[in-house]
Design a protein around this nucleic acid. Structure first.
Lengths: 230, 230
DNA sequence: ATTGTCAGATTGACTGACGATCGATTATAG
DNA sequence: CTATAATCGATCGTCAGTCAATCTGACAAT
């Protein structure tokens, strides 16, 4: 996998695009909020053309919706829509896992297991940031070994949408042990070169995560127990 | 399902966007072809801003790739990428089918079967255009009943990519009988309210279609038999 | 044959401008 | 006092023109 060494200066448009995406995903802009291009212009110090082009991209990704003659709004993610997103994510991750089980090299399998062991060992004492980083690594290794750029692209988009959710409301406090167990099943299935089992293990993992997240979303954000039973 | 009757004049940008998409999907622009701003401007009679925004959308959809400082090119779909697209399509359609089996109303189930019967009866004598129309209808009914706007969106994008394939090279001449049989399995599973069976039936259907299409793609477009065994 | 240079073309980005449209506010009529 | 109508400001959609940076291809020089 040789990378091109070419340096290519990030165009202004990319910066706006990524900045705006980050702002939305991290919840700095509330869902439903209006984003007139004027304010985006002086927020990023860019001209209207660049801002509008960037907005188009995010529109296609589903992070903003553009109402005719009213401009861009931060996309609103209802509970039903969130459930749909999780459904799609489930099958896509399942496909990625299945594909990994089929095509990954031995090194990649070993690395995936290493990341999982990292999660199991350091996870319980890690803070949110580190935890997210480890999980992110797990996905990166998985997608790299899956040999399917398409599913990677789509999952990226979906994860952005999900992170929007996560930022606005919920975290998964008590779920870590279950996450570890569920992912172990994935890793084991992969080591056994069992694509079918990997598929259902991945899908079930996402399903569990969805159940918890959606339950949290459904309960109005007032009294919210620490206990979360999967 | 009441639609808003409000007429909203399609903005220029949409027209460019759809026109360009259609042109690419129908193969009027060859894969890899360069699309300078200038050309698109006088082709659609629009200004550069409009054209560039439209191009951004298609970029996010994956129909065009933009090389820095070189501009937009019609996306090229290699055989491996095509296989990946089919893989993704497989799980998404499977999810749609499964979801339909779970959530569709009786009317929707009946309609789906009606469309299938239409295909089985009129299919063998229909021309390409009619055939595509019936299949399209099948998908529309399926997606409507699946109650998942997300999967519908993504499948739309994927179908565009696939149609690009189809336009450039292949049709599926002898496959119709198998298509009918495979879809019957889907419809039957749905009538039995068996989501799992529907899932695998859908996925297998796409897999079969992929096998044929990819085999055609792999053989250099010279001597190409009429016979296609699935 | 490789390297260097230059002109033309194209992109990336910015600016200023114009009418059209929407939302809200105000004014008017009943 | 309510309800409709007129008004107005903000924003969008679109265009045209400018400028610098970069790429392409051709031509010249080593």
């Amino acid at each position: 996998m040789s990378e091109s060494l070419r340096i290519v200066p990030q165009p202004m448009r990319r910066q706006v695009e990524e900045g705006l995406r980050a702002a939305i995903v991290n919840g700095r802009f509330a869902p439903g909020e209006h984003l007139p291009d004027r304010v985006l212009c002086d927020l990023f110090g860019a001209s209207r053309s660049v801002v509008r082009e960037a907005v188009r991209l995010l529109e296609a990704e589903g992070l903003v919706t553009v109402q005719p003659n009213r401009g861009p709004f931060v996309a609103h993610l209802s509970v039903q829509e969130a459930a749909q997103v999780y459904d799609v994510r489930g099958v896509l991750e399942a496909l990625a896992g299945e594909s990994f089980a089929r095509h990954a090299t031995d090194d990649e399998r070993a690395e995936l297991r290493a990341v999982w062991e990292d999660l199991a060992r350091r996870g319980p004492t890690a803070d949110r940031e580190q935890l997210l980083s480890i999980k992110r690594r797990f996905y990166d290794v998985l997608l790299a070994g899956a040999r399917n750029a398409y599913v990677a692209r789509m999952l990226d988009q979906l994860l952005n949408r999900n992170m929007q959710l996560r930022a606005t409301s919920l975290s998964d406090p008590g779920r870590l042990p279950w996450t570890i167990k569920e992912l172990k099943r994935v890793v084991d299935a992969i080591d056994r070169r069992d694509p079918d089992e990997t598929f259902v293990a991945c899908r079930e993992h996402v399903q569990r995560a969805a159940d918890v997240a959606l339950r949290l979303l459904a309960t109005p954000p007032g009294r919210r127990d620490a206990e979360v039973r999967p």
